[in-house]
Design a protein around this nucleic acid. Structure first.
Length: 204
DNA sequence: AAAATGATCAAG
DNA sequence: TTGATCATTTTA
């Protein structure tokens, strides 16, 4: 396993999105190492992309991290109390990011269940395990990611993404992004990517 | 009959 | 987006 460096993130956003699939998101919390394999992502290509928070170079306290250097976490609150985690890409002042939409739980599953369901699960059935991280809000809850983590450097020790030198024997599927009906001509751009046949993706 | 899957809707 | 509820399909 080796940790992704800033040079990885500081490239073309579509490219980074696809390459993020199969890598491992790691967050150390409560003294535990929580790990999930990235199985679904979406690219947001501001300032042209009408679905991006940075559309038309819109900038606010919430999204300013998108304008900074790559490799930082952009975490925002959606629908009152759900969080979404993104990874900032491209060079400074190019406000683009990749939204992490789903993970496959790998390590620290007990702790994830505790964070998400607030109780111990004596038995983790297939369904419950899937429900841990098969959505952007769910994975944030399971990995203990909140708005407090907004702006954190992913080239750090407690919060990062690493890769296995091993193979990547999966097929990448690309489709329209989810829940961006307001994005007009950008609504149908095929910028959602996921691992074909993986049971942990957020939608059928 | 029970469990898995899907469609619909409200909440924050 | 998520969770809840209700309808429908699948499994055994």
């Amino acid at each position: 396993m080796n940790k992704l460096k800033r040079e990885f993130y500081s490239r073309n956003t579509i490219q980074v999105s696809k390459e993020l699939l199969g890598k491992y998101l790691v967050h150390h919390v409560n003294g535990k190492k929580l790990v999930g394999k990235i199985v679904e992502v979406e690219a947001y290509l501001g300032p042209e992309d009408k679905a991006a928070h940075s559309y038309n170079r819109h900038k606010s306290k919430r999204n300013e991290i998108m304008y900074g250097p790559a490799g930082f976490a952009y975490v925002f609150v959606i629908y009152g109390h759900n969080c979404c985690m993104n990874v900032v890409t491209e060079k400074e002042d190019i406000p683009q990011a990749v939204l992490i939409r789903a993970l496959e739980p790998i390590e620290g599953i007990e702790e994830m269940a505790k964070l998400r369901f607030d109780k111990k699960l004596d038995e983790l059935d297939r369904r419950t395990k899937i429900n841990l991280t098969n959505g952007p809000g769910k994975l944030c809850q399971a990995l203990g990611i909140s708005k407090e983590n907004n702006g954190e450097d992913l080239c750090s020790d407690a919060f990062y993404i690493e890769e296995d030198q091993a193979e990547k024997d999966f097929e990448v599927v690309s489709t329209k992004r989810v829940n961006i009906d307001y994005a007009e001509e950008y609504r149908d751009c095929p910028w959602r990517f996921y691992i074909r046949d993986n049971i942990y993706i957020s939608k059928k």
